[in-house]
Structures are given as structure tokens and as C-alpha cells.
Simulated scan of single mutants.
Amino acid sequence: MERELISHLAHGDHPIAAPVSESELVRLLTRAALPPRARILDLGCGEGAWLTRALTLHPDATADGVDLSESGLAAAAEEAGRRGVADRLRLHRTPAADYRGAEPYDLVLSVGATHAFGGLAPTLAAVRDHLRPSSGLALVGEGFWERPPTAELLTVLGAEPDEYADLAGTVERMEAAGYAVIHGHTSTLDEWDEYEWSWTGTLTRWALAHPGPDGDAALAAAREHRQMWLRGYRGVLGFVTLLLHQAPPTG
């Protein structure tokens, strides 16, 4: 099975697609305090959970969602229709790094999608290109090391020791890129567990209901992921979502 399809199936019961609860997602979006008729962009929107909630909270806002996943964008369109916000949401199937908007945005999101740009630093640079000068906000979700990873875990994750910083270092990296951190949410272990149990369990249930090569592949992916989580990064890899404001230039 294609990785994209496995991810789509696994997120079926947790479309936020990050270790963030629904209540915390809403709190972060509310904290942004967007202006009237705000323009919102999500680079790597997946199934559009952040955008559809943002449009529900801000009835006069419009939004663009960018992703490569055809199934994810289809799910985003369906959810937008269910919530009655489809007329204010535009979806684009294109690489996030290639997207160019017609006008700047009041809020740009990239939550758990920094891989689309090759890491945190290029993600922050790309986000800045889309922000409304002076007033634009960014909401960026990124992993961090809760404690130093072992060499074995780094091999399993295919990661380098400096791929993530600790929490303080992650904040420092964002501020070094020209942003001021004005709010944030550090995902709890309960949020991580809910996300991972949902990811592996939803995929396992689908696999059991679809015997055959696809079901076998999905079940193997679920078990591999669960092993990597429970025997590997649980309690080691954290996740933080930070609300950022462009910092004024120095000097």
C-alpha cells in the first residue's frame, strides 16, 4: 500500500493528525485573535482539521489549504461541506514549498509538516514569505526531544541528533529565525497516547476488515508503528505548537 493511503486510513478517527486534542486546537486558534475577514493558509493541511475549525470560529474568514495527498484533500472538502464552510475554503494539490498565494495571509499554519520543506528552518522561512507584513501570525507544530535519544532510536527514526532540539532549544530556533513566541501548547503524554492508539488502532481495525494483500500491508504498518512508538520514542519525542509573531528587525 502507498504510504499516503496508510496515513489517510490511520488518521480516520483522529483527523487533527498531530498529538493535539480538539480542545487545545480550538484554544490555539482562538488565542490567535484574528482580524475581521482574515486570510488563513495551511501548508500541509492534510484532512483540513485546523482549517475547518478556524473557519468555523471565524465566520468571515477565508482559507487556503495546500497538500499533496489526494485522499486528504478529499476528506478536507467533505469536512468543510459538513461544517458549512466549503464556500470559504480553497484546496490546492501542490507541494507546499511551491505554493504562491495571491495576497498575504493573517495566519499561516504548518503543524507537523516541516518535513515538506526539509526541516524547521526552511519551514519558518517559507511561512514568512506568506505572512502579512507586521501583523501576520504563524502557528507551527514541531517535535522536540523530551530527553536525549539513544543511538538506536535515532537509527529507527532515521533522524540525526540535532534534527530536533529540546523544548527550550526549539523556542530559541524559532526566535533565531525572526519570530517572537507569543503562546504555545506542549502536547501531554495523554495527547500523544490518544493520537498513537488511534493511529495504530484505526489502521488495525481497517486491516482486519479488509483481508488480503492490502489488509496484510496495513496490519504490518500498524504493528511496526506501534513497536516504534512503545519501544522507541514514547516519552522521548515531544511535540510543541507555537503561536508566532514576526519579530521587528534589529539594529
Rank of each mutant, 00 (worst) to 15 (best):
D214N: 10
L203E: 04
Y164N: 03
G136I: 01
H183G: 14
E224H: 12
P211Q: 09
T241M: 13
E160M: 15
A177P: 04
L208P: 07
M228W: 12
M228P: 05
D214F: 10
T241V: 10
V127F: 01
E152Q: 06
A180P: 11
T250N: 11
L167M: 15
E142C: 06
D166G: 02
Q246D: 11
L203M: 05
L137W: 02
V240Y: 02
Y179H: 00
A138K: 00
H210R: 13
P149Q: 03
G184E: 09
G235S: 13
G238H: 05
A180C: 15
A151C: 06
V156C: 12
H225W: 14
T186L: 14
W145E: 01
P211R: 11
H130S: 03
R234N: 03
E163K: 15
G143C: 14
P161V: 15
W192R: 02
W206E: 06
A176S: 13
A138I: 00
T200Y: 09
R147T: 12
V140D: 00
E194S: 10
H130G: 02
L243R: 00
E194M: 14
G184L: 11
G215E: 02
A126N: 13
L157E: 06
L203W: 01
H130T: 09
D214A: 12
L189I: 12
T202N: 14
A247P: 08
D216C: 15
R173G: 06
A138S: 04
V181E: 09
P161G: 15
Y233R: 05
E196N: 09
G178Q: 05
A221H: 08
V181F: 07
G215T: 08
F239P: 01
T188F: 02
G215N: 02
W192E: 04
G136A: 06
F144M: 03
A138L: 02
A221T: 04
L237M: 14
T200I: 10
R173T: 05
E172S: 13
T170K: 07
L153P: 13
S198T: 13
L124P: 00
E152A: 15
T186K: 13
P248G: 14
L131C: 02
R128M: 10
A247Y: 07
P133Y: 03
A217C: 11
L244H: 05
L219I: 02
G158H: 08
R205I: 08
W206D: 02
A217T: 07
R173E: 08
L230C: 15
A151V: 15
P148R: 07
E160V: 08
T150H: 06
H210Y: 11
P161M: 13
A159W: 05
M228A: 13
S198F: 04
S135Q: 07
Y164R: 06
A168F: 07
E146C: 06
L208G: 12
V181G: 02
A159C: 09
A176E: 11
A138V: 04
L242G: 00
W199Q: 01
R226L: 15
G232D: 11
Y195E: 04
A218I: 03
G212W: 06
W145H: 04
F144Q: 00
L219W: 00
T241A: 09
G178L: 05
E152D: 11
P213N: 13
R226H: 10
G212P: 12
G212I: 11
T170F: 07
